[in-house]
Design a protein around this nucleic acid. Structure first.
Lengths: 150, 150
DNA sequence: TTAAGTGCAAAAGCTTTGCGGGTAG
DNA sequence: CTACCCGCAAAGCTTTTGCACTTAA
């Protein structure tokens, strides 16, 4: 994520904390920065292992708790993925994903035609849609190259 | 899933096994049947806990291994979800999902307009798309009712 | 017969929780 | 001050793995 956007997101965080009267700690700031920096849709362990978080000596439990708080605050979202650990996404705006079914990589994908998708009416099911993602499922470059070599 | 489709899918399984010369065991058959019966996109523990699998005294390890084999055979797919355990989907055809961001329910959703989505060209990224899903994210009926009561 | 599958139990990976001490506002 | 947060450690959930035994073809 570019620095300009990142600065804006961190300012947004500061204001949200002030508005809700919750403390803005150095730990939370570091965790948010890492998620904004990484575009690999990391799980909590990957955030925990990141140099910035390790340098700050932040505990594993705090990383897990903080990520969930950031989601509740709407500053981070959860990525939908085929694997077995919760994955976080620094982007909360409308965008889409390429999902590799071999290595479970999640790649961001922006496309105006996908954004313009007509959202179906789900009210008959009692389901309230807030947001959507198109997931293009397949095999990423790296996995394809690995398979060719064999 | 209706019985007619289920019978067809089980026959497909039998033929795939024969074609590849792999044994069709009673355990695999039971696990496949359970995934086809459930439409809740169960994780491995839920399949393990199902009456049919328990009656057959199938071990936990076999459930985990079998689910992965069925995915490799293309008889079952993995659902993309926001949570922390792999979830399986008895449907492998084109369809879409409603994702509840509160309880992480995954509901099937069929819609011809979504099916007709123009698939973007991802070849520049080296990504080969095989399939897609639209995920409508929001809050399901039950979670909305629970929140109203409070 | 035999390649593959299964059960068991241990280990590894991921996540939550209770509690005593610390800190932002 | 004081409500909230943090680190630690233990516990709980999910998944994988090695090995000896069993089974479908």
């Amino acid at each position: 994520m570019d620095d300009r956007t990142k600065t804006r997101r961190l300012e947004e965080f500061r204001q949200l904390c002030r508005a809700r009267g919750i403390p803005m700690t150095s730990q939370r700031r570091a965790v948010l920065e890492v998620v904004l920096d990484l575009d690999c849709h990391p799980n909590a362990e990957q955030v925990y292992a990141s140099p910035k978080v390790r340098r700050a000596r932040i505990s594993r439990a705090t990383v897990y708790r903080t990520l969930e708080s950031l989601v509740r605050l709407g500053l981070v979202s959860k990525a939908c993925h085929p694997g077995s650990a919760v994955r976080y996404d620094g982007r909360t705006d409308l965008h889409h994903h390429l999902i590799c079914l071999r290595c479970e990589a999640v790649l961001d994908f922006d496309d105006e035609r996908l954004d313009a998708l007509p959202i179906p009416d789900t009210s008959a099911l009692g389901f309230e849609v807030s947001d959507f993602r198109v997931q293009l499922r397949g095999v990423c470059r790296r996995c394809r190259e690995l398979e060719e070599r064999r």
